[in-house]
């Protein structure tokens, strides 16, 4: 456990030592938030769109931006940079459990997720959004978002460890598009045309967005929160185990 704490501390220190690695990840979510509100808020408003539960469109869009903000390849890039610089070899030759290298990075993803989710949420509140579930709900939204960031980080980490290539790891953001856009990100499931609606219902990320959205628009809807948490735990477990498996076979490649 000690080594996980030590490596987490190092990874967390990187967040403020290299803000250039985190700040660009906020660009896409904030850009989409601004664009979505600008383009759609007149089409959907509290008078004609019951799915907004009496709020402006910003309240519907912020959960999507939260998911966008924490779904990054940052920790994968940090890993592949360590590999590139030879520091990774120093960690591999240290008498530590190799799992701690991956877990240490995930801890930093959690901290980064807390910070970026808080920022996006604060921005939403500044734009007039209200959180139906109150302060407790706001805390839960930030926590769930950060945990989703940890789960998603497994994709970048697995690619980094398998390819050991900065460009390929950087290109892993391509995964981001189908996962995050085949969702009810603009309108609810029911308003999506087929086959988009079926694809969105099959996409687990949809349920993360829906869970966060329910906390903003409706309050504590247990079924939505449970589905959101279930997807986070399941995908986090699968993707982290995948990274650990790639790392376990690292020497053999």
């Amino acid at each position: 456990m000690n080594e996980v704490v030590l490596l987490s501390r190092r990874a967390v220190r990187e967040i403020w030592k290299l803000p250039a690695a985190t700040l660009p990840t906020l660009f896409i979510p904030l850009f989409f938030l601004a664009v979505n509100i600008g383009q759609v808020s007149k089409t959907f408003n509290s008078d004609n769109a019951p799915f907004l539960f009496g709020q402006d469109y910003v309240a519907f869009a912020v959960p999507v931006s939260l998911v966008f903000a924490v779904s990054t390849a940052t920790s994968g890039l940090a890993l592949v940079t360590d590999i590139d610089l030879g520091y990774f070899d120093k960690l591999l030759v240290a008498p530590i459990r190799r799992t701690s290298i991956v877990l240490g990075r995930l801890a930093a993803d959690f901290v980064r997720g807390l910070a970026t989710a808080s920022l996006v949420l604060a921005l939403g509140l500044a734009f007039g959004m209200r959180i139906a579930s109150g302060v407790g709900g706001a805390v839960l939204i930030v926590l769930l978002s950060a945990l989703w960031g940890v789960a998603y980080a497994g994709i970048g980490q697995a690619i980094a460890l398998k390819t050991r290539n900065v460009q390929t790891t950087n290109a892993s953001f391509i995964v981001f598009f189908p996962l995050l856009f085949l969702t009810p990100n603009f309108v609810p499931f029911e308003l999506l045309a087929e086959p988009m609606q079926t694809l969105a219902r099959l996409n687990p990320v949809s349920y993360v967005i829906e869970g966060l959205r329910s906390l903003v628009l409706e309050g504590f809807v247990l079924a939505d929160i449970a589905a959101c948490l279930g997807v986070i735990v399941a995908s986090g477990t699968v993707l982290t185990l995948l990274s650990l498996r790639v790392l376990a076979n690292y020497d053999r490649d």
């Binding site: 030590l6 190092r10 220190r13 610089l85 030879g86 520091y87 120093k90 240290a94 530590i96």
Partner: peptide
Amino acid sequence: GLDPLQTGRELLELQAGLY
């Protein structure tokens, strides 16, 4: 094999901790 973002002291303290 050094981490360029850390200071020399941070790097050595981390290494000592890992061992």
